[in-house]
């Protein structure tokens, strides 16, 4: 972010470079951290720049990035979506079941996405009515949804679920989504993520809905006073989150080749971590999806570096956790109560 950009955002106040850095402290920090990690990775890991590695990194990043869209929007209005991993898993096994029952893939995916939108709408509606207790609402909704989907899926005979896994014929076009395409160089999933990211960033920065989301997250009472439709925004944000989670579930199905109810489990904490490390505050109103993309890339590069150093996924998890507190302490501290009186 340069001074010129910052100046454009505040037309009445031209910011010096120093002030711009302060204003976008979290973004600058995240960008510097990403650059440092890439430099370190390139210097110490053999094959870091190899096309195979870059491509597979981007595919991983696109899965996490898509699941993080919803978490970012929820964080911007001051909520959290704990149901993401459950919806990812439910969409994943649900779609296999639909296709096993003879539903063609495209209508099947549309049905899954529509159901996810309805579930998200319910989460958003209840969370708003309960004055923002989205963490526990989505925890309940997520468990209920994954529970019922697994019950329904297990219904009939040997085509059902066992041990959380369900086998089925996954159409080639879904499987090819996660595979690098010869003509375009990267996997279609990456292109889809890039397009969605651009759309979401544009939506947040330029559209009425996006600006309303920031207004709502900044101060809910003020947003209500200026007659923003708070409830509809909560419903919209949580529906979008569930749809993106379901989409991640569908893409993961193409990647792994069979349905697994626990496939979303890693996305519970990594989506929150990506949001936090990118610099979007959980209090609401500050941050954006651009920052979360940085967070997603940081997590992905970090994972490559740690895996390149032969660290187990458990050790990677521990190191990721250890990074969160210092990052947040740098820019996302609450003011002292004495400043709030």
């Amino acid at each position: 972010m340069t001074a010129i950009d910052a100046g454009r955002a505040h037309p009445n106040r031209r910011l010096s470079l120093g002030m711009a850095v302060m204003q976008y402290k979290s973004t600058v920090l995240a960008a510097v951290a990403l650059a440092a990690l890439i430099a370190y990775g390139a210097a110490t890991i053999d094959g870091f720049w190899s096309l195979v590695n870059l491509r597979s990194n981007l595919v991983f990043a696109s899965f996490l990035g898509m699941a993080t869209i919803g978490q970012t929007l929820c964080a911007l209005i001051g909520g959290l979506d704990i149901s993401i991993p459950f919806v990812v898993g439910a969409a994943n096994v649900g779609l296999v079941k639909l296709m096993n029952e003879g539903v063609p893939s495209v209508p099947g995916i549309l049905v899954v996405l529509a159901l996810a939108a309805a579930i998200g709408a319910l989460s958003g509606f209840v969370s708003h009515r309960l004055r923002g207790q989205s963490l526990v609402v989505t925890l309940g909704v997520g468990n209920a949804v994954l529970g019922i989907v697994q019950i329904l899926v297990s219904g009939s005979g040997n085509a059902g679920i066992s041990g959380g896994t369900i086998e089925g014929q996954i159409p080639d076009w879904i499987q090819n989504f996660a595979v690098a395409d010869k003509a375009i160089g990267v996997a279609p999933a990456v292109l889809l993520w890039a397009a969605l990211a651009a759309l979401i960033i544009f939506m947040l920065r330029q559209s009425w809905v996006g600006r309303s989301i920031y207004a709502l997250g900044g101060n809910q009472s003020a947003a209500e006073r200026v007659l923003l439709p708070n409830e509809r925004l909560w419903i919209l944000v949580f529906s979008l989150s569930a749809v993106m989670a379901a989409m991640t579930g569908v893409l993961l199905l193409g990647y792994t080749g069979s349905g697994y109810a626990g496939v979303g489990d890693p996305y519970l904490f990594t989506t929150i971590a990506a949001v936090l490390i990118g610099g979007t505050s959980l209090v609401g109103g500050r941050g954006g999806y651009g920052q979360s993309v940085l967070g997603v890339l940081i997590l992905t590069v970090l994972q490559t570096i740690l895996a390149g150093n032969d660290l187990s996924s458990a050790a990677q998890e521990a190191i990721l956790g250890a990074l969160i507190i210092p990052t947040i302490a740098l820019y996302a501290r609450s003011p002292h109560p004495r400043m709030q009186i």
């Binding site: 959980l282 458990a314 050790a315 521990a318 956790g321 507190i325 947040i328 302490a329 609450s334």
Partner: peptide, 23 residues
Amino acid sequence: TLRISTVVVTLAVYLVVDGSNTV
């Protein structure tokens, strides 16, 4: 002392301790 939210700190500790347990 750092005035960061309980969810963030305990999430970080979740990841650190959960990972360490398996290590």
